[in-house]
């Protein structure tokens, strides 16, 4: 029978554990980098899976549509409602339309859309591809001479990159509608005045920055979901991990990208 000491000697030390974690982190970064490079290598090469891209765009949009409509509207109403008392103190309730539009168009619409999509679409992509990986469906595509990366990954990443900016624009419009209804009810501001005041402080740089953010968020959600699912292992447990990893990693990256893009957009103002 082995002694307790011998087990203690074999257990990795804290330093070794840290070293292994650092190594596996950088290995993971390299694999993600290679995955992204592979995407750009394959996406421009025929055959193009147009039908599948359209199907994925539909799936991405429809999956998130109801939730985004509801969230966008509530954000508009609540943000307006919560901002009113502070502005009332300064007698500046006429600034409400501008305040709502700046908050919604510059920050909230792309960010909230991305977070919802990360939860709904990202997890779904991670789980779907993960499940296909562990049931050998991806291997079956590989051995039958079809290109699973192109069919499964490229189409989904294109779909999220294209659809999420559209959804973010829709979220912005719905949130502005929510804000307008609240302002109209309380201040009696007309639709034309609301629109005029709302878009007065918004520049083209703001709109482009917002759209650029949504494009980057869409790409991130797609690529992270696909990476997690496509490289899933260890059976059903792996599928769960892929879905969870897709959501957590995408949300984390979305926040980092938000900060970076706001900073970069600031240089152009």
């Amino acid at each position: 029978m082995e002694s307790i000491e011998s087990h203690t000697e074999q257990a990795p030390s804290g330093l070794t554990k840290v070293k292994n974690s650092v190594i596996s982190f950088f290995l993971m970064l390299y694999r993600v980098y290679a995955f992204i490079i592979r995407f750009f290598k394959e996406v421009f090469v025929p055959p193009y899976e147009f039908r599948e891209v359209v199907r994925q765009c539909y799936e991405t949009g429809v999956r998130s549509f109801t939730l985004i409509t509801l969230t966008g509207f509530i954000i508009g109403v609540i943000f307006t409602k919560q901002s009113r008392p502070s502005l009332t103190d300064f007698g500046a309730t006429s600034w409400l339309p501008s305040l709502v539009s700046i908050a919604v168009l510059k920050a909230l619409a792309p960010l909230v859309t991305a977070l919802i999509a990360a939860g709904k679409v990202g997890s779904s992509i991670g789980a779907e591809l993960g499940s296909m990986r562990v049931t050998e469906q991806i291997d079956a595509m590989e051995v039958s001479g079809t290109k699973p990366f192109k069919f499964l990954v490229c189409t989904r990443v294109i779909a999220t990159t294209f659809t999420i900016p559209l959804l973010a624009t829709y979220t912005a419009l719905i949130a502005l509608l929510g804000g307008y209804l609240n302002i109209n009810q309380n201040e009696g501001t007309s639709y034309a005045t609301f629109i005029e005041q709302a878009f007065e402080p918004i520049t083209f740089v703001d709109i482009w920055a917002s759209l650029a953010k949504a494009v980057v968020f869409g790409f991130t959600i797609g690529i992270v979901g696909c990476y997690q699912g496509y490289n899933s292992t260890k059976g059903t447990e792996g599928v769960g991990k892929a879905a969870n990893g897709a959501v957590v990693t995408a949300m984390f990256l979305v926040f980092i990208e938000e900060v970076l893009i706001v900073q970069i957009a600031g240089w152009f103002r």
Partner: peptide, 19 residues
């Protein structure tokens, strides 16, 4: 890729595309 078309692979769990 060209060679794979000439080889058929029947998987243990069939691996049918379930969607």
């Amino acid at each position: 890729e060209a060679l794979r078309i000439r080889i058929g692979f029947s998987f243990q769990n069939s691996a049918l595309y379930d969607s």
